[in-house]
């Protein structure tokens, strides 16, 4: 897969996502965002590795933590920031907000504020791809908590019986919202649940973009060639709270620091430096460039106007 080249691009994309999430947190702290903000800091390797296996015509559904995946899929940072700020140039012209990002031209078919709700919808997108006799693949992202929702199980079964071109990416960040997932399931590996539906499954290190990408490539290939769905459990870690303001009483600072030292950006930087692909300085420069791009997108979004109040009554049906 041209590893020498793509890992550098993957690092750059992960820097963009990190910078996007940090900028989002800044907006939130400045009081510029409504509602709650759920960040995916620490989970960038899943987004970049999995989406990296897709083509532009492929589609994804995501969760309220999924703006990094949307960015990786090609959604404009400026339009997403504008949406989060409630501006008229936002992806939904300010009517959706941070949890409702749609960009159908980029194949981003919605982040979702209801846990597991995007999975049946993704199954339907995959059914459409199958009925169209296209080789489009659909990927659905969800967290560990989603595997306890009925919608997850119903969609897994639909994907299996209809042999849908669907890749199910479970981001297991160890906490379903504010509760350890190990208290809420009996299995160590959530991928075991796929056995019940005869869906091929794998457990991968979700903080290693290389293994995520490899597993996703296999799953996408299986889907594209008509062999049906795959379930990938990507073990990762959310380095920030469930939402901004989460007191994080369910874990220790020590635990967070251990994971931070083993975070996806740190690991990819280290391996690229070790392999002589990049210098530490080059990494810093790439990160600075990503920040600059994201800050420019943020500044652009901040300058955009709010929608006319009359827009509140449109597109209801």
């Amino acid at each position: 897969m041209g590893e020498q080249d793509w890992r550098v691009g993957a690092l750059s994309e992960m820097y963009r996502i990190r910078a996007f999430e940090e900028q989002s947190a800044d907006f939130y702290r400045q009081g510029l965002l409504g509602g709650s903000l759920h960040l995916g800091i620490g989970q960038e390797a899943v987004a970049v590795g999995a989406v990296g296996a897709l083509r532009s015509a492929d589609q994804v559904t995501m969760t309220y933590r999924g703006r990094g995946q949307a960015l990786a899929k090609g959604v404009s940072a400026a339009a997403m920031f504008a949406e989060m700020l409630g501006r008229s140039t936002g992806t939904s012209h300010g009517k959706g907000g941070p949890m409702h990002i749609y960009s159908p031209e980029a194949g981003a078919m919605g982040t979702n504020a209801i846990v597991a709700a995007g999975i049946p919808i993704a199954a339907g997108l995959a059914l459409a791809a199958q009925l169209d006799e296209s080789d489009r693949v659909v990927m659905t992202f969800f967290g560990d908590g989603a595997v306890n929702q009925g919608a997850f199980h119903e969609a897994m079964n639909l994907a299996a019986i209809w042999k849908l071109p669907l890749v199910l990416i479970c981001e297991n960040n160890l906490y379903s919202e504010m509760t350890p997932i190990r208290e809420m399931v009996v299995q160590d590996d959530l991928a075991d649940r796929a056995k019940a539906y005869a869906i091929p499954a794998a457990v991968v290190d979700g903080n290693d973009v290389v293994v995520v990408r490899q597993a996703a490539e296999e799953a996408v290939q299986r889907a594209r060639s008509g062999q049906g769905p795959t379930f990938l459990e990507c073990k990762t870690y959310r380095l920030v709270g469930h939402m901004l303001g989460d007191p994080e009483v369910y874990r220790t600072r020590d635990e967070v620091e251990r994971w931070a030292a083993n975070g996806p950006l740190v690991r990819l930087e280290a391996s690229l430096v070790r392999d002589g692909r990049l210098t530490a300085k080059a990494c810093e420069e790439m990160q600075a460039a990503a920040r600059e791009e994201i800050q420019a997108a943020a500044a652009q979004a901040l300058a955009e106007p709010e929608p006319d109040v009359a827009q509140a009554l449109t597109h209801v049906f």
Binding site: T61, P104, L127, A155, N157
Partner: peptide, 15 residues
């Protein structure tokens, strides 16, 4: 699986 197939119908409808 009313929740599952309605969700799937929505997905197909969006495209």
């Amino acid at each position: 699986s009313e929740s599952g197939f309605l969700g799937a119908a929505i997905g197909a409808a969006t495209v």
